[in-house]
Amino acid sequence: MGISRYLESRKNIAGSACGLVGLVLTFTGVAGPYWPVVVAGLYGAGALIAPPERPPLPEFPDPSAQLGELRGDFEKLSGYLADADLPPEARDLLARLDELLSALLDPGWAAELLAQDPEGLHVLARAVRQDVPEAVDTFVRTRWWTRLTPGQEPPELHLERQLTLVQDELKLLATALRETEARRQESHTRYLEDRGRDR
């Protein structure tokens, strides 16, 4: 800790306050000839009982900023998928997945709900940044080895299964967001009904 930081610290402030009490005792004659020891002792006691310094909380991006970054990553993912050589069935699955991701990432009501749902935001980020690119990359690499050693299980089956699982997870997220809005609507209806009965 630097000198300037120590001078502004709680320990120094508490110690100085107690040291001032020692000076008051000195001027009133209570401390006697041992006043330096009394002042130093009180300063030390004040510094010891002061609460410890608390480090500042780290600043993390707020959910709306995280969604903005995620939209940028989704654009990168879309460019990557456009260049990948994939079978027609996987392309169809990716088109449906792309539509679902676009709807969830679209600025608007979904983004507002996701900003209040860290777990949902995590599911969405994992799909964009990990699950989909890893599924496609693993397929591309496995297909190359399968061509060298024919007779193995087709890697297309795994890719289609993986993309279907990601899509199912995102559908559950979309359903949960829809149910949140439905509960909000029902709550507002009950509020209006209760208000009408109170008249």
Results as ranks from 00 to 15, higher is better:
residue 184 R to S: 11
residue 106 D to P: 02
residue 181 E to Q: 15
residue 45 A to K: 01
residue 45 A to E: 02
residue 38 V to Q: 03
residue 145 W to A: 08
residue 93 L to S: 06
residue 6 Y to L: 14
residue 37 V to F: 15
residue 48 L to F: 09
residue 124 L to C: 04
residue 178 R to F: 13
residue 76 K to M: 10
residue 130 Q to D: 13
residue 105 L to A: 04
residue 119 E to M: 09
residue 140 V to K: 03
residue 176 A to D: 13
residue 145 W to E: 12
residue 9 S to P: 05
residue 5 R to C: 13
residue 173 L to H: 04
residue 176 A to M: 08
residue 128 V to D: 01
residue 35 W to E: 04
residue 21 V to T: 07
residue 157 L to G: 10
residue 105 L to I: 05
residue 138 T to V: 10
residue 179 E to H: 15
residue 157 L to A: 13
residue 141 R to H: 09
residue 147 R to C: 03
residue 54 R to W: 10
residue 44 G to T: 09
residue 187 S to N: 13
residue 83 D to Y: 10
residue 55 P to A: 13
residue 106 D to I: 05
residue 36 P to H: 10
residue 47 A to L: 06
residue 120 G to I: 00
residue 54 R to P: 04
residue 104 L to N: 01
residue 115 A to E: 09
residue 30 V to M: 09
residue 136 V to E: 00
residue 38 V to F: 03
residue 62 D to M: 03
residue 16 S to Y: 04
residue 98 D to A: 15
residue 63 P to W: 05
residue 65 A to H: 11
residue 150 P to H: 05
residue 158 H to I: 08
residue 58 P to I: 04
residue 19 G to H: 00
residue 178 R to D: 15
residue 60 F to S: 09
residue 130 Q to H: 13
residue 17 A to T: 14
residue 104 L to V: 04
residue 149 T to R: 12
residue 127 A to M: 01
residue 69 E to G: 04
residue 16 S to Q: 02
residue 83 D to A: 15
residue 109 W to M: 14
residue 100 L to A: 06
residue 47 A to M: 08
residue 93 L to C: 07
residue 144 W to H: 14
residue 109 W to S: 14
residue 194 D to G: 08
residue 78 S to C: 08
residue 32 G to W: 02
residue 42 L to K: 01
residue 47 A to Y: 05
residue 5 R to T: 14
residue 87 P to S: 10
residue 9 S to W: 02
residue 94 L to P: 00
residue 132 V to E: 01
residue 121 L to M: 09
residue 110 A to Q: 08
residue 184 R to I: 03
residue 71 R to G: 07
residue 136 V to S: 01
residue 107 P to E: 07
residue 130 Q to T: 12
residue 67 L to K: 01
residue 104 L to P: 00
residue 42 L to T: 02
residue 160 E to N: 09
residue 179 E to V: 12
residue 44 G to V: 12
residue 88 P to C: 07
residue 34 Y to K: 15
residue 12 N to Y: 10
residue 103 A to C: 06
residue 74 F to S: 03
residue 20 L to N: 03
residue 169 E to M: 07
residue 165 L to A: 11
residue 196 G to W: 11
